[in-house]
Design a protein around this nucleic acid. Structure first.
Lengths: 143, 143
DNA sequence: ATAAAGCTTCCCAAAATAGGAATGTCAAGG
DNA sequence: CCTTGACATTCCTATTTTGGGAAGCTTTAT
């Protein structure tokens, strides 16, 4: 039964109505059926799919990934190995990103700790960014 | 002496010529002086500034932040406290992002470990994304 | 009947980077 | 002197995801 309006589907799924139309337009979800007046209609199953998309977004999957995942999810005969491979690839991307951010943080921490943080203009953070010689500058140049 | 072309400045600073023009257009760096033929000219000091921008980008500062940092950097009388505050605010953002990504990773790891990853279509990852009841689903709904 | 709310499509914006087109300038070589 | 190639300029377009808004139609409620 396709009896939910787009705003009802939005509320039930947690996906903004604007985003639902966008996801449809780029093919992440199949085009919604239309009522006689042209309004989009959503079934409970459609809303499950939307919730699926939102959860995957919350896990940081790109819409491109999600398009694949939705396809696998709606395909009864898909192999779980495919899904696992997608998940593991995404985990690797997450780990790389985490390591990168951690490196940034550590470098900033070193610089910030060395900065007296008062009214004097002398500041190791800016000195380092300016390319002054020194240990932390070496760290930076490795990026 | 402003005697470097934009491509020379790009090579020396590590900032793409296209990006140099973009940074200038949005005011991250001041407008370059022009030679008689209209070409941009860069001094060694200008190139230092560009390198400064690149390093701050490598540390993940937004161009908005960098615009402030460049201003502070070029201002001889700025207080190091201002710089330190910017750096610490950025460190907090980094930590929050790291925690978020780590949470995503941990959730995916739990799901992936539970997935047998073979030819059978039964897959806990998809089940969870679909909103099936269970511990990991509860985790997800907290996002 | 009229007003409010909801739906439609279409346009525009953000941030940062990249690619290309059209045009102009400079230096070297035939 | 002229051509060629490299480099410069500006302007347009695209990317990704989300959001804001306008104009116009439909439904619902008063």
């Amino acid at each position: 039964m396709k009896n939910h309006s787009i705003s009802a589907a939005a509320k039930a799924s947690g996906v903004n109505a604007k985003m639902i139309r966008y996801y449809e337009s780029i093919g992440v979800i199949p085009p919604a059926e239309r009522a006689d007046n042209g309004y989009r209609q959503y079934s409970a199953q459609d809303i499950y799919t939307l919730r699926f998309v939102r959860r995957a977004r919350n896990l940081g999957f790109s819409l491109e990934d999600i398009q694949q995942l939705v396809g696998l999810w709606q395909n009864q005969s898909r192999a779980s190995a495919e899904v696992k491979a997608l998940a593991e690839a995404h985990m690797q991307r997450l780990q790389a990103k985490i390591a990168e951010l951690q490196g940034m943080h550590d470098t900033l921490k070193t610089l910030s700790d060395a900065c007296h943080g008062d009214q004097r203009p002398d500041c190791p953070i800016l000195q380092d960014l300016a390319g002054a010689a020194g240990a932390s500058a070496k760290q930076l140049s490795c990026h």
